[in-house]
Design a binder for these strands. Structure first.
Lengths: 259, 259
DNA sequence: TCCTTTGTTTGCTATTACGGAACACCGTTT
DNA sequence: AAACGGTGTTCCGTAATAGCAAACAAAGGA
């Protein structure tokens, strides 16, 4: 963790937010101070600032500190600014109607994927809390679809930083194997996840490219491996690639994708 | 703005976040520095810290700073922790089914209401970006329903701090009139918004009380005034009060509400 | 081409944030 | 009841550090 030209107390504040966000029911000054090994009074002062701005609230009963609703506000603004969501929505809905499986829209952020939309059969209502969740790239269809359309040096940087932790017995944990897979994905134009992230779950994904041809997002269909047969995938991949091209075009990328 | 025992740089950082969040397409160091009248280099150093933690990202093309997806993550955790949402969901769904109107679930936060759920006919998918939005209390049904079940001194504090800005010609802008209305709401157990916030829109709301009988949230039905007739309201209010009681009970409030 | 306007870095100084300790305030225990 | 361990909060001297001004770099525009 390099700390060149940064503000120490701001960093501490953000670490405190991280800690506070992790405990649903809040926690106290002393507990926080222990976790990051700085003085109680410093924690208290930073918390006071965060409270003043609504980032953190102090529970009236227990006195514990919890995350404030301010984050919902910013999150809302953020989602608004991602017009990709609005653009993608009709395509996702059609995909869901056809497949009756779970549809995801993710964005690449700092070597992970962030879910910004999830359509799940009749349970569309339950999805909110999933939006914002993160997942690794090396063992998800969306992650691999994006990696395959990123410059090599960025891919190496991500893999070096994040490693290839094993999630299931099928997770690709060797870098050379993954690179070969990415090369294939690049040729085919879509990525598969054959139970590499979660046992029994198979996914197919296509990347969404920005104006320079770099992947910034991806769309996927996920389902139980029993339903996601080779045949199903073959039917799906054509349509999904079409959707990927369409959405890429709306981000300004008009060049022709291979495959 | 009192600043006793707070950390200046942290406050500045949060102000910078506020500014950055307001511009969809991001903005530059100089622009930010101008807005809060501090030195460029200070802004730069704080931004560097925020970038390091993922709160802010720098656009690769333009170099402008935009809000990072970190906020989605925290927002997600926050929504998870609000079990009120989960508890309320089935009730809201039934309300929506019956009325075919827009259903809102809000939480009180610092003298405003924050939307944490929105059900909107067939367009349930479009709601995400609305979650986290804020609205004033004095001119919304949900806001008034909550105010009516808060201690007087808190009500006065909120009104003093926020004022009663006029949104439509029907907005209540006189404090004594509003207090009288709140008293009536307290007796009846539900609140109406007769085009006080938005022209042509009528709403009805009931509060949700915590274990001590103080309002912390509210549920509402909104629709065009043409459809939200007196008769409709009369039919609705009984069921909505029942929902309010039910949800209050789950938060630990078991005392009998008046009305 | 030069000039303006960015973003970034540097060095100095005074600000200010930090940590230790004291304080106040519980709830328990003895 | 009084002493205790556990909170959260406040105070104060000091040293670290965040802020400022100015210089630098880089990128457009005229």
């Amino acid at each position: 963790m390099e700390r060149v030209n940064t503000v120490k107390s701001v960093g501490r504040a953000l670490e405190i937010i991280e800690i506070v966000s992790a405990k649903k029911n809040g926690l106290g000054v002393t507990e926080i101070a222990k976790q990051i090994d700085i003085n109680k009074s410093s924690v208290h002062r930073i918390l006071a600032t965060l409270v003043q701005y609504g980032y953190v609230v102090q529970d009236g009963e227990t006195g514990k500190y919890r995350l404030g609703y301010k984050f919902l506000e910013y999150s809302s603004r953020l989602l608004d600014s991602i017009d990709l969501r609005a653009e993608a929505r009709p395509f996702l809905q059609e995909l869901e109607k056809e497949t009756n499986e779970v549809i995801h829209l993710v964005i690449h952020d700092h070597g992970e994927v962030v879910y910004i939309e999830k359509l799940e059969g009749n349970e569309t209502l339950r999805m909110h809390s999933k939006v914002g969740r993160r997942a690794p790239m090396h063992c998800t269809s969306v992650g691999k679809a994006i990696l395959a359309f990123l410059p090599e040096n960025i891919v190496f940087e991500i893999l070096a930083r994040k490693g290839l932790p094993q999630h299931t017995e099928k997770t690709i944990t060797k870098e050379d194997v993954l690179l070969q897979e990415l090369e294939e994905i690049g040729r085919k134009g879509y990525a598969l996840d054959l139970e590499e992230n979660e046992k029994g779950i198979t996914c197919i994904a296509v990347p969404i490219l920005d104006h320079s041809g770099r992947a910034v997002a991806a769309v996927s269909v996920s389902g139980p491996s029993t339903r996601m047969s080779d045949g199903t995938m073959q039917e799906l991949q054509g349509e999904m690639k079409q959707i990927g091209r369409e959405l890429s075009a709306r981000l300004g990328y008009s060049a022709r994708m291979r495959g």
